[in-house]
Simulated scan of single mutants.
Amino acid sequence: MKRVFDLLLGLAASVVFIVPLLIFALLVKLTSQGPALYWSHRVGRNNVLFSMPKLRTMRVGTQVVATHLLRDPDQYLTPIGGFLRKSSLDELPQLWCILRGDMSVVGPRPALFNQENLIEMRTEKGVHVIRPGLTGWAQINGRDELPIPEKVALDAYYLRRQSLAFDIKIILLTLIKVLRRDGITH
């Protein structure tokens, strides 16, 4: 049932957002050197790596670490990178991963391949067995501001409480967070 929900919502969102995605991809290309998309190696279901696209918000050559680990991350942003991040529009290409089955609409956000502590803690809690999501319970309860142990606790809570109704609640709360730009540090 969850996979059917993901496919239907992913297809609908792809139709709605294809034109804005193409416009923002063009703007990324016109305002900075490098490709419009950045493909990030992420940890998926059962800790299997997959490639996840995002609209590129950082300059080519920026160190591959979680943004909060960069010293003065704003210096690495492309001219429209700040806007794309604050509006969460940089995440639109991940609809591709939902359609492919690498991601779900709702689930724990996929860890970077080098976030070993986060990966280990999620594995200990059994969170690694579910597909990562475009949004999740941790995203609406702190997003970038959460320490890793709290993020993992929220991911484990989601694992235990998964349901279509809970997913719908998370999606609606995510829309509110995105519109308010809550919990976004860069």
Rank of each mutant, 00 (worst) to 15 (best):
residue 81 G to Y: 00
residue 46 N to C: 09
residue 8 L to G: 15
residue 101 G to D: 15
residue 160 R to V: 10
residue 104 S to E: 12
residue 71 R to D: 11
residue 111 A to F: 07
residue 42 R to I: 06
residue 146 L to A: 05
residue 93 P to C: 05
residue 121 M to D: 11
residue 138 A to T: 10
residue 158 Y to A: 10
residue 64 V to W: 01
residue 112 L to R: 08
residue 99 L to D: 08
residue 151 K to W: 02
residue 141 N to D: 12
residue 11 L to D: 01
residue 179 L to F: 07
residue 146 L to M: 07
residue 178 V to D: 01
residue 108 P to F: 13
residue 158 Y to G: 09
residue 16 V to W: 07
residue 18 I to H: 12
residue 57 T to R: 00
residue 45 R to W: 07
residue 8 L to I: 13
residue 114 N to H: 13
residue 33 Q to N: 14
residue 6 D to Q: 12
residue 23 I to K: 11
residue 53 P to W: 10
residue 180 R to G: 02
residue 41 H to V: 10
residue 134 L to A: 08
residue 174 T to V: 04
residue 95 L to T: 02
residue 174 T to R: 01
residue 64 V to N: 08
residue 7 L to H: 06
residue 69 L to D: 01
residue 126 G to M: 09
residue 70 L to I: 08
residue 59 R to W: 00
residue 16 V to C: 08
residue 94 Q to F: 01
residue 106 V to N: 09
residue 92 L to G: 03
residue 48 V to H: 15
residue 78 T to S: 12
residue 83 F to G: 04
residue 88 S to K: 15
residue 21 L to W: 07
residue 56 R to F: 04
residue 98 I to P: 05
residue 72 D to R: 14
residue 7 L to C: 14
residue 102 D to V: 09
residue 36 A to Y: 02
residue 102 D to A: 12
residue 90 D to K: 02
residue 18 I to E: 09
residue 56 R to V: 02
residue 132 P to M: 14
residue 124 E to W: 03
residue 59 R to H: 08
residue 3 R to C: 09
residue 112 L to N: 03
residue 11 L to Q: 05
residue 32 S to M: 08
residue 32 S to E: 05
residue 65 V to Q: 09
residue 89 L to W: 04
residue 1 M to W: 13
residue 176 I to F: 07
residue 155 D to N: 14
residue 32 S to G: 07
residue 111 A to T: 06
residue 41 H to D: 12
residue 7 L to T: 12
residue 39 W to K: 11
residue 135 T to W: 06
residue 57 T to V: 03
residue 123 T to I: 07
residue 48 V to R: 15
residue 70 L to Y: 02
residue 154 L to D: 05
residue 3 R to H: 14
residue 93 P to I: 00
residue 39 W to R: 11
residue 110 P to R: 07
residue 12 A to G: 13
residue 157 Y to H: 13
residue 71 R to S: 15
residue 159 L to G: 07
residue 165 A to Q: 11
residue 82 G to Y: 00
residue 83 F to E: 00
residue 149 P to V: 11
residue 63 Q to D: 11
residue 116 E to K: 10
residue 104 S to K: 10
residue 86 K to P: 03
residue 89 L to P: 03
residue 148 I to G: 06
residue 139 Q to K: 10
residue 152 V to H: 07
residue 170 I to D: 07
residue 51 S to G: 12
residue 41 H to R: 14
residue 182 D to I: 01
residue 178 V to N: 04
residue 50 F to D: 04
residue 68 H to M: 15
residue 104 S to A: 15
residue 150 E to C: 09
residue 99 L to E: 11
residue 52 M to P: 01
residue 175 L to S: 10
residue 103 M to T: 05
residue 167 D to N: 15
residue 88 S to H: 09
residue 69 L to C: 04
residue 155 D to Y: 08
residue 34 G to V: 00
residue 19 V to A: 09
residue 179 L to T: 04
residue 87 S to F: 02
residue 4 V to W: 12
residue 116 E to L: 14
residue 163 S to N: 13
residue 69 L to S: 00
residue 168 I to G: 00
residue 8 L to D: 05
residue 153 A to K: 15
residue 110 P to A: 13
residue 72 D to F: 03
residue 65 V to C: 12
residue 24 F to I: 09
residue 64 V to Q: 11
residue 144 D to L: 02
residue 28 V to A: 10
residue 137 W to H: 14
residue 115 Q to M: 13
residue 145 E to T: 15
residue 21 L to Y: 09
residue 10 G to H: 08
residue 118 L to H: 05
residue 40 S to R: 10
residue 78 T to F: 03
residue 55 L to T: 03
residue 57 T to N: 00
residue 150 E to G: 09
residue 170 I to A: 06
residue 112 L to I: 08
